[in-house]
């Protein structure tokens, strides 16, 4: 790891000022950043440890919804009563099976987690190119994208909370780069699919800091996330789906379905939502929604199985949200 300087700002404004200079990187818990630095996948001249910025902590009721500071740990999210009406978040928590990550991992760290693509992590860049060829395309793409992969990016978005948050209509607050600048974005607009190596996986520019996530009121909506994990322990999902449903007289009034780990960004499935609207959620309907969700999948050479996983995730998320998921599945 090359030497760098280490800054510990006490306020958002200080953090933003420190981040505005080129070559600065945000440090939350370090579980993602440290590996990236050690492998020189990320090079930095300054690490900005935001842990002293108190305003980034806390989960609070605001404007009919809930704001979550990016430094909230997974444990904070799991335990906070204000989030009790957002079970799809708890579902994500349940899948992250390590006390170390529960107690130290942060929401911001998850949302900004860089892709786990093994080519990216081996130093081939986000697009995984070597000698003009796309390694994910010609190489081993068993864990790569089945949607949104027509361009050069084939990796999958790493965030586990993003699908559930997006399905709830979450917005995120971004501070900087000017000292008092801030803006709110729908979380889905926070993510982007890079077209070249100059682009990142989020819209953040130097000097910007993700500070808070805001969730609208849960009202009477139901929700669930279903993740397919390869292993029972700490592992990354092969695919996931989050569903938030507004039910009226036993029928779906509105539905938002967001898949995770299947595309370079969290992936809306409008077609699946279409199948649901106006219908009561039954196992048959959930199955149909799952099938619709993957009808336009474009798997790569080695990952057709992920189409099935995505389909199953959608189906099971819907059944789980409506308390119909049976058996040990």
């Amino acid at each position: 790891m090359n030497p760098f300087e280490y800054a510990q700002p006490n306020t958002e404004a200080e953090a933003v000022a420190l981040l505005a200079e080129r070559g600065s990187t945000v440090l939350a818990s370090g579980m993602d950043l440290m590996p990236l630095l050690r492998k020189s996948v990320v090079e930095t001249e300054r690490v900005v440890d935001i842990s002293r910025v108190e305003s980034l902590r806390g989960i609070e009721a605001v404007g009919g919804g809930v704001t979550i500071g990016v430094l909230s740990t997974l444990e904070d999210i799991a335990c906070n009563p204000l989030l009790a009406d957002y079970p799809s978040l708890k579902d994500v928590n349940e899948g992250i099976r390590a006390i170390q990550v529960q107690q130290n991992g942060t929401l911001g760290g998850d949302l900004c987690h860089l892709p786990n693509c093994w080519y990216f992590r081996s130093g081939y860049g986000l697009l995984g190119r070597e000698n003009g060829k796309s390694l994910p395309e010609i190489g081993d793409n068993r864990y790569h994208a089945i949607f949104g992969n027509a361009g050069p990016a084939k990796f999958v978005s790493a965030s586990r909370f993003a699908p559930a948050l997006i399905a709830w209509g979450a917005k995120v607050r971004i501070a900087g780069p000017e000292p008092d600048a801030e803006k709110w974005l729908p979380l889905e607009e926070f993510y982007q699919t890079p077209k070249t190596e100059r682009h990142g996986v989020t819209v953040l520019t130097p000097g910007q800091l993700l500070t808070h996530v805001w969730l609208p009121s849960a009202e009477n909506k139901v929700s669930a996330t279903y993740e397919v994990l390869e292993m029972e322990g700490l592992d990354w999902p092969l695919a996931s789906a989050a569903a938030t449903l507004e039910l009226e007289a036993g029928r779906v009034r509105t539905a938002t379905i967001v898949l995770g780990h299947v595309a370079p960004t969290p992936w809306f499935s409008l077609v699946a939502a279409d199948v649901l609207v106006g219908q009561p959620v039954t196992p048959q309907l959930a199955q149909a929604a799952g099938e619709a969700a993957v009808s336009e999948a474009t798997p790569l050479s080695e990952n057709a199985y992920k189409v099935r996983l995505a389909q199953t995730s959608v189906k099971r998320a819907l059944l789980k949200a409506t308390n119909q998921l049976e058996g040990g599945l």
Partner: peptide, 14 residues
Amino acid sequence: LNANLRDYKLPRIG
């Protein structure tokens, strides 16, 4: 490709 303990999948306690 998976020469690390995250991608080289050894079972865990569960």
